[in-house]
């Protein structure tokens, strides 16, 4: 079964499956233990190393450590950043991170939509939202405004095993009732190319005002999961790895681009649109009767057509012309015995250089304009009652 087409072959909206977009991805940690080596952590010894790669490694990969660890933090700044480039745009569903040590008292989740050039908050987790992030704690009613916003949730709780779980549903920051299909604001909210986790404040094991009492803190975590769907705007059911190692959508419906975010060059009879569950909004090939390889979109024609067709064929070949290469160019006429799509659908007028008054024939009948007394489709004979003269200006004169 083809998720992007129905049984009759008609296009329908389709989306890739839900995956852990972080699985196997590189993680950039601002702090990792083991350089220089300590008794507990040695970056050069696989049995005692705690690299950031463990955050996104497949479960059960090695017999060694399973948790990433930061360096021991004693004084400010106590924040550590974990950045995961996802490789392309994803539509996020959830983010989770399992802590191997007591979970931090404050964590910020950020996203980038431009491969790390700019960042925007997705959510905050803190026992003191106002002090750490300048935000009120989670209001019972959810976002105050009409659109999604980064809210401050309670910090993750310590569990009996000494760890804890940070779990964030991306739609938690969104007002109820917004639908991904119909809300561009929500589509923007869930879209990310990179995820950043900022471990802002540790759960200090001591009184920070008393330097003697402060115990060095180590952030430690594993299983960073970024649940989401490869973003293909409803025009692909899977993403594929290119030869260069880039992840791209397997675009259908006449679309192209890493996110199927534009129409293919010849598929511009109407503007690109994201597919919905009700309408695939497929890009449609221009109608050029097989005589052109390129076309462009004209919004004015599209409006005038009742938003049905706006494609204009470019460089019509085979002596055709017109917006759809649907008639013959000047000096040619339609051969009624051939289909419009036939490479030889247009025949040269072939008007006689002396008998015809011009070189352009009737585009439908092929009749050339004849001088007085001349007849024939190409004006190559004298009409009955006329005979050929010696003058090329009046090639046929009345028979005396």
């Amino acid at each position: 079964a083809d998720p992007c087409h129905d049984e009759g072959g008609a296009p329908r909206g389709c989306v890739p499956g839900l995956v852990n977009a972080a699985l196997g991805r590189e993680v950039l940690a601002s702090s990792t233990c083991g350089r220089p080596a300590t008794r507990a952590c040695d970056a050069s010894d696989p049995r005692r190393a705690h690299p950031a790669a463990l955050l996104t490694a497949a479960a059960g990969g090695t017999a060694g450590p399973v948790c990433w660890r930061s360096e021991a933090l004693v004084r400010a700044p106590l924040n550590v950043t974990l950045t995961v480039p996802l490789g392309k745009a994803f539509e996020l569903v959830f983010i989770s991170l399992r802590f191997c040590s007591p979970p931090p008292a404050s964590v910020a989740l950020l996203k980038s939509q431009d491969h790390g050039r700019s960042w925007a908050p997705l959510g905050f987790f803190s026992s003191r939202c106002g002090m750490d992030y300048g935000r009120p704690p989670l209001p019972a009613t959810g976002p105050a405004g009409p659109g999604p916003e980064a809210l401050c949730f309670p910090a993750p709780q310590a569990e009996p095993d000494g760890g804890g779980l940070l779990a964030f549903s991306v739609q938690d920051g969104s007002p109820p009732g917004l639908d991904l299909d119909s809300s561009p604001v929500l589509q923007d909210w869930v879209t990310a190319t990179d995820i950043r986790v900022v471990l802002t404040r540790p759960a200090l094991l001591g009184d920070p005002r008393d330097s003697e009492a402060v115990v060095p803190y180590v952030y430690s975590a594993t299983e960073l999961q970024v649940g989401g769907r490869c973003k293909c705007n409803g025009h692909a059911s899977q993403c594929l790895l290119e030869a260069q190692g880039r992840l791209v959508c397997d675009c259908q419906h006449g679309t192209e681009g890493p996110d199927c975010g534009r129409c293919k060059p010849f598929y511009c009879d109407r503007p690109w649109q994201r597919a919905t569950t009700r309408d695939a909004h497929a890009c449609i090939a221009c109608s050029c009767n097989g005589h052109a390889r390129r076309c462009r979109f004209n919004m004015e024609l599209y409006r005038l057509s009742g938003r049905r067709s706006g494609g204009v064929c470019l460089n019509c070949r085979h002596d055709t012309a017109g917006r759809h290469c649907h008639y013959c160019r000047e000096g040619f006429y339609r051969d009624p015995g051939r289909a419009l799509s036939d490479r030889r659908a247009c025949r040269a007028c072939d008007c006689h250089p002396v008998g015809a008054a011009g070189k352009t024939c009737n585009q439908t009948t092929g009749q050339c304009p004849c001088k007085d007394g001349v007849t024939g489709l190409t004006c190559n004979r004298c009409a009955p009652g006329f005979q050929q003269s010696r003058s090329p200006v009046a090639p046929c004169v009345k028979t005396p």
Binding site: G355, T375, N380, R381, C382, V393, C396
Partner: peptide, 23 residues
């Protein structure tokens, strides 16, 4: 009656050299 096609060799181009088609 089908008239014969125009015979280009019969035309006198003396005064119309500029109109003479290239052969």
């Amino acid at each position: 009656e089908v008239m014969p096609t125009l015979d280009m060799t019969l035309f006198d181009w003396t005064d119309y050299e500029d109109l003479k088609p290239e052969v």
